[in-house]
């Protein structure tokens, strides 16, 4: 009787299952998920471990337990190409830094215009801007290459950085427009009443408020530019100017199947900045893709 009464009075449990079954189910789910995550990340973990193994062992040890720690691959890989690997890391860093500054300045300016200003043909220009997001780089690479080679820019970093100074990464313009639209207009209006013009409203009101969008842009530009291979392969043919991906690729072609250890070592070095960016900027990355769907 009391049993029945209690059941009537107590709110119905959300899931009609016994606790024991619930625990088993969630345990099974977590086991499955952890197993899957492990399988997915296993190749990468294995590469890191293999880079610390002697060369001949790489092809015999599918496991990830190290018998001994060998850092020789790193020294060997670092000096395997015409210049020490640090040279390519610095080249990549220069390109990345240039692209980040370019995107931050030019995209935020364009975004301010699209989000806050009224001007002739705004809808059309906005549609064109959205259209360029979907434009494959392969469609424009040939004329671009011709232009840059006539300017004498081949084997310089200019073809990689200058487009970013001209707001061609429309993704980020869109991301910032969305962000600025979410900021209260009263702030601009208050500044305008106080006599501020658009440059001042942009610099002193909007920019400080859009730091999260700028952070997202920074971190995505960093990762994309660091990974970018196609345009760097095309514009940088002089080993002196190689960035990390192009250097790594020339390494692969030069040492096929002879020295996987040092190749793995340099691959790990090249992935490390991405991994760090991921650890530091995870919050912005997740938010960035969730709101705009970028990769």
């Amino acid at each position: 009787m009391t049993d029945l009464k209690e059941r009537v009075i107590a709110p119905a449990p959300p899931v009609p299952q016994t606790p024991a079954r619930n625990v088993t189910r969630s345990l099974a789910k977590h086991t499955g998920l952890i197993l899957l995550a492990l399988i997915m990340l296993y190749p990468v973990i294995w590469m890191v471990v293999s880079s610390l193994r002697p060369n001949d062992e790489i092809f015999r040890s599918p496991g990830i337990v190290l018998d001994s720690l060998q850092t020789g691959n790193y020294g060997e890989g670092w000096n395997a190409l015409s210049a020490p690997f640090s040279h390519f890391l610095i080249n990549s860093a220069i390109v990345v830094l240039g692209c980040i500054i370019g995107n931050l300045v030019s995209c935020s300016m364009a975004a301010y215009a699209f989000a806050r200003l009224e001007f002739t043909g705004k809808k059309l220009w906005f549609a064109i801007m959205l259209g360029t997001i979907m434009l494959p780089i392969h469609v424009i690479i040939v004329p671009q290459y011709i232009l840059f080679s006539q300017l004498g820019w081949i084997n310089t970093f200019l073809p990689l950085i200058v487009p970013k100074l001209l707001a061609t990464d429309a993704f980020f313009v869109f991301l910032m427009v969305q962000f600025i639209r979410g900021l209260p207009r009263e702030l601009d209006e208050a500044a305008r009443i106080d006599g501020a013009g658009h440059p001042r409203i942009f610099l002193q009101v909007i920019l400080p408020l859009m730091l999260p969008a700028l952070a997202t842009t920074t971190i995505f530009t960093f990762i994309w530019t660091w990974n970018d291979f196609f345009s760097q392969l095309i514009y940088l043919t002089d080993p002196e100017m190689y960035t990390v991906p192009v250097a790594l690729r020339s390494f692969v072609d030069a040492t096929v199947a002879t020295s996987w250890g040092s190749m793995f070592a340099m691959s790990v070095v090249s992935l490390l900045p991405i991994f760090l960016a991921f650890l530091i900027g995870q919050r912005y990355l997740i938010k960035g893709i969730a709101t705009t769907g970028i990769k």
């Binding site: 040939v142 487009p163 100074l165």
Partner: peptide, 20 residues
């Protein structure tokens, strides 16, 4: 003002994207 703020983007559109 819009022209000023969009100047880099316009230049990019002509030289880097739509032009090519």
């Amino acid at each position: 003002a819009a022209f000023f703020f969009l100047l880099p983007w316009f230049a990019g559109l002509i030289v880097i994207t739509a032009g090519p």
